[in-house]
């Protein structure tokens, strides 16, 4: 895929470019926000990887400008800041995900892939996916653990299917609410947590079984398949 990469630290940027190219991606590196924005206006990119602090135009400002223009590729922020308020700021800005610097190469590639997959989603509708002990039948909306049927409620099923469909990506609370509880927007904040907790217990989404279900600073959830 084609990646727009905005980063002013040249040595660091070279590392990233190497990593991504090794993984088979096409990377266009920008040191200036304006140049990046200009390129995004004329060319087609699959994904944006932005640094937070750029002298002429911060990653946030570039993202704001993109939003004004309408459609734009998914954006991942690379940030040296990992304080809770910084992460919250990134998510609230409308970015799709974030990675704390310096990224572990495998994580970076996995995140990019997950996001790319989401935007170019194949139709999972009638698939049956197998993950070790767990099998997910998208068509029949059924889950089996170690070959045994697991009974889930309507909303749990909805949430679980969405998690498996969007594996590896950061799903904000607002987004989850909209997708799963769309008809009842004023749900209690605890509701999502309770449902996630049920899924963890019923589907055994634990590292022991190759899964990691994380709350991202209480802002959203991410379901990851461990390698």
């Amino acid at each position: 895929m084609k990646i727009a990469f905005l980063e002013d630290d040249l040595a660091f940027a070279q590392d990233i470019v190497n990593t991504l190219e090794t993984a088979g991606h096409l990377v266009q590196h920008f040191v200036s926000g304006r140049a990046c924005l200009k390129a995004l206006a004329s060319e087609q990119f699959d994904i944006c990887l932005f640094d937070w602090e750029i002298p002429d135009m911060s990653g946030f400002e570039v993202l704001s400008s993109l939003k004004l223009k309408g459609s734009y590729p998914p954006v991942i922020f690379l940030t040296g800041r990992d304080a809770e308020e910084d992460i919250v700021k990134v998510i609230e800005s409308g970015a799709d995900d974030y990675i704390v610097k310096p990224p572990v190469a495998s994580v970076l590639v996995a995140r990019l892939n997950a996001l790319h997959r989401r935007n170019h989603a194949k139709d999972n509708k009638n698939q049956v996916l197998k993950f070790g002990h767990l099998s997910v039948d998208f068509g029949k909306r059924r889950f089996e653990v170690n070959g045994e049927f697991v009974k889930l409620t309507e909303k749990e099923t909805e949430l679980a299917l969405y998690f498996f469909d969007q594996q590896g990506t950061l799903l904000s609370r607002g987004h989850l609410t909209k997708v799963v509880w769309g008809t009842t927007p004023d749900i209690d904040t605890r509701t999502i947590d309770v449902h996630v907790s049920h899924l963890r217990n019923k589907l055994l989404l634990l590292p022991e079984h190759g899964w990691r279900l994380t709350s991202v600073y209480h802002q959203g959830y991410r379901l990851e398949r461990l390698s």
Binding site: R190, D193, V196, S197, R200, P207, L213, S215
Partner: peptide
């Protein structure tokens, strides 16, 4: 308001 059980699970993970 946080789900403490979720926190414990996550930390264990």
């Amino acid at each position: 308001e946080l789900d403490f059980a979720g926190l414990v699970h996550q930390s264990t993970d």
